[in-house]
């Protein structure tokens, strides 16, 4: 290929893909973040990145899977950045005698504000209690119904790792439900 042969991606095609897929992509984002506003921000960032690199999309593959992969990468990046910021503030805050410690109060987090008693809410809280890699693997397998191979492709890891994350993730979720809702989900007890 020479420079004159380079194809410019079609914005109209991207828009039609986006309109067809955004609800599904938003669903995954909400399961991962637990907050509607965070999920919308995440989805928007993912679509903007997808638009910029639309020339890399292979139309022979499902657009939603490509979007899931982009969204997943952004979500993991955000989580890593957040954990770095938190570690640095814990190390450095307070040395000058004026800095205010900004440590999240886990017990008063938004998860406690969600109405309890509904099965969906209980499951969503359980998902949020898991570490992000386990949560992502469980959501892709059980909520999105994907095969291990597809999940490995999206998470850019091996099938063995996916297998282990799903196994351990479900165990964590069952323990959470058993601890927080004892007797409510009798079949889910560990």
């Amino acid at each position: 290929m020479t420079p004159t042969q380079a194809q410019r991606p079609d914005p109209a095609a991207f828009e039609s893909y986006m309109r067809a897929s955004h609800r599904q992509v938003y669903g995954l984002a909400l399961r991962l973040t637990g907050q509607s506003s965070d999920a919308e921000d995440l989805v928007q960032e993912a679509y903007i990145r997808a638009y910029r690199f639309f020339f890399r999309y292979d139309p022979g593959l499902p657009f939603t899977s490509w979007m899931y992969r982009i969204l997943t990468n952004i979500h993991i990046d955000h989580n890593r950045r957040k954990s770095r910021i938190r570690a640095s503030s814990l190390d450095n805050a307070g040395l000058d005698g004026e800095t205010v410690w900004e440590v999240a109060d886990e017990s008063a987090g938004p998860d406690k504000l969600v109405l309890e008693g509904e099965l969906d809410d209980a499951l969503q809280l359980g998902l949020l209690s898991m570490c992000s890699e386990f949560r992502l693997a469980v959501v892709l397998a059980d909520v999105e119904g994907m095969a291990y191979e597809e999940i490995a492709e999206i998470m850019q890891t091996s099938i063995g790792t996916v297998r282990s994350r799903i196994h351990r993730g479900r165990k964590q979720l069952r323990r959470y439900l058993d601890r927080e809702y004892p007797g409510r989900f009798c079949e889910v007890n560990v």
Binding site: F14, R19, E40, F55
Partner: peptide, 17 residues
């Protein structure tokens, strides 16, 4: 809002030949 955000980006990049 999503469409507006995409439109604000302008033309998508083309692959560097």
């Amino acid at each position: 809002r999503l469409c507006a955000a995409i439109n604000a980006e302008g033309q998508p990049r083309r692959e560097s030949a």
